[in-house]
């Protein structure tokens, strides 16, 4: 049941809610060193995830393939109408990322579930918050790795030719979108990975929540690809950033309670 429970974290004291006093720790650390430990632990989790990912690589390959197939399907759905395809490029790209992300996110806790890899985490006194940020960062990086494949494929399929200088912007926006999907995605995949109906539940919970991120991403990418007549790019990027801040902080607060109950 409680495969994900981090061993050393006292179960009753969670940052977000509980007011119960913790048993006095003789080696109580100062606030600064607490944050330093947190950061280290986040990086440990991140490193472990990336290492595992790199060892197998199969997940990345299959998710990339899935994204490419999705992009291809959009061009069939819209038909051989080059103008319509070109106008929809930003939307198709973001949807391809979103659909691929559910595959990637759903897997992010399955490793811990199926193999006993969680043992490694249990041996370390990992803070739940650090576990969350490590996992979420890992997912962000994972989803960002789709960009070098999916963006060029979309540009070729839908015959869009942005300037070379725009590629950096495209990638930056992709990173923000991936981050905006990853924070709530990590929270919800931690919950749903232990349920039978994960395939239904994860999109059901995640998709409505990330509508602001999707909207901002589609608009901003579209402005980069088709021209920014009104100078709106900055504002959409800021909106994307603002929702990232909201999700990353809010999900970080509630995550410890979520895995405590698992």
């Amino acid at each position: 049941m409680s495969t994900l429970h981090p061993g050393a974290a006292p179960a009753t004291t969670t940052a977000a809610t509980s007011g119960a006093p913790a048993p006095d720790d003789p080696a109580a650390r100062s606030t600064t060193s607490f944050f330093a430990t947190m950061l280290t632990q986040t990086l440990i989790v991140l490193r472990k995830d990336l290492l595992l990912e790199w060892r197998s690589r199969s997940r990345l390959v299959s998710v990339v393939l899935f994204g490419v197939v999705t992009l291809l399907l959009f061009s069939f759905a819209v038909g051989p109408d080059v103008r319509a395809l070109r106008e929809g490029t930003a939307g198709f790209l973001v949807l391809a990322l979103l659909l691929s992300s559910t595959l990637g996110l759903a897997e992010s806790f399955r490793l811990e579930q199926e193999q006993d890899a969680v043992e490694g985490l249990l041996l370390l006194p990992i803070e739940p918050v650090a576990l969350f940020y490590g996992k979420a960062l890992g997912n962000t990086i994972f989803l960002s790795l789709l960009a070098p494949i999916l963006i060029p494929v979309a540009l070729v399929l839908y015959s869009v030719e942005p300037a070379w200088s725009d590629f950096l912007r495209l990638f930056g926006l992709w990173l923000l979108t991936a981050a905006g999907l990853s924070a709530p995605g990590t929270l919800y995949s931690a919950m749903t990975s232990q349920l039978r109906s994960q395939d239904v539940l994860l999109p059901l919970l995640l998709f409505p929540l990330v509508v602001p991120v999707l909207l901002g991403a589609v608009k901003a990418l579209d402005l980069v690809l088709t021209g920014d007549a009104m100078g709106q790019l900055g504002s959409w990027t800021i909106m994307l950033l603002a929702f990232n801040l909201i999700y990353w902080s809010l999900c970080g607060i509630v995550f410890p309670r979520a895995i405590e109950a698992s």
Binding site: A22, R29, T31, F34, F35, I253
Partner: peptide, 19 residues
Amino acid sequence: MSNESRSRKVLAIVAVLIA
């Protein structure tokens, strides 16, 4: 209250403020 649980509270408050 131990330092650690206070630190967790600080972290949560910072997060709420950011959001």
